[in-house]
């Protein structure tokens, strides 16, 4: 058995590892992970049905009583909307009772200088200007910013405009109207609320594309796990360097 230079190097590196060696951290608790995937499903259903509500499928022949296409599309849109809204409320609740990572969606360390320098580092990593990214237990600063703006703020805008539009059919005096009806005159009129709801959908669709891509890319190229973390909850690190 011979000792190669490679073995020596490995031995040397092992010696320099901090005493508190952490290769895995439990980040995303079970209810939060369930929320993530339910939310993902709800957004998918909402975007697809929403598109077909705005741009209906080709017209059907026969009696009106033979079909209920728009009716079903709208039903699934509203059902998924309720799931999304209830999930959003649950997510706020979980920020209070969950671990510290569960609060990231609602807190942005706007005034912390290191947040912005690290965010810039992350941007440079995506622009191939940095050899490797930093390690993060929770979201990296770039992802953190996007999550707060798109999922928290954007999600809230979609819920508010969505329920305002929904209140138009539940009618004056319904709880949807009492809670969200004020949005319509605030924005202008019903048609303007629709417009904002449309734009919101496209913002979220583009975000989902970027989110899925960066999750896969980070899983492959960064120093930590991403996709499996949202399944098991454990953040695995691929190296022991800080």
């Amino acid at each position: 058995m011979s000792i190669t230079s490679e073995d020596l190097l490995r031995e040397k590196r092992r010696a320099s590892v901090p005493k508190a060696r952490r290769t895995a951290v439990y980040v995303y608790q079970t209810p939060l992970r369930i929320w993530h995937w339910v939310n993902a499903l709800a957004i998918t259903v909402l975007a697809i049905t929403g598109w077909f509500i705005a741009n209906p499928l080709p017209s059907l022949a026969g009696e009106a009583s033979d079909h209920f296409v728009m009716g079903y599309l709208r039903f699934f849109h509203f059902a998924a909307g309720y799931v999304f809204a209830v999930g959003f409320l649950f997510r706020i609740y979980w920020a209070f009772v969950g671990n510290s990572y569960s609060r990231q969606l609602f807190t942005l360390p706007f005034w912390r200088r290191s947040f912005w320098t690290e965010l810039w580092h992350e941007v440079r990593w995506y622009a191939f200007k940095e050899p490797e990214p930093h390690k993060y237990y929770g979201h990296n600063p770039l992802a953190h910013l996007f999550m707060v703006v798109i999922i928290t703020v954007g999600g809230l805008v979609m819920i508010v405009t969505g329920f305002a539009l929904y209140s138009e059919q539940t009618g004056l005096g319904s709880w949807q109207d009492e809670l969200f009806g004020w949005v319509i005159p605030l924005v202008g009129q019903s048609q303007d609320v629709r417009l904002w709801h449309h734009w919101g959908m496209w913002v979220i669709v583009v975000f989902v594309m970027l989110h899925v891509y960066t999750a896969i890319r980070e899983d492959v190229m960064s120093r930590q796990s991403l996709i499996s973390t949202m399944i098991s909850g454990w953040r695995m690190f691929k190296d022991d360097r800080p």
Binding site: L57, S59, S65, H67, F68, M70, G71
Partner: peptide
């Protein structure tokens, strides 16, 4: 208090997907 759409006599065609 209601939209044209809510009481439109062509509403069944909307729900059915006949345009």
């Amino acid at each position: 208090g209601q939209r044209i759409h809510d009481k439109c006599y062509r509403r069944p065609h909307f729900d059915a997907g006949q345009f």
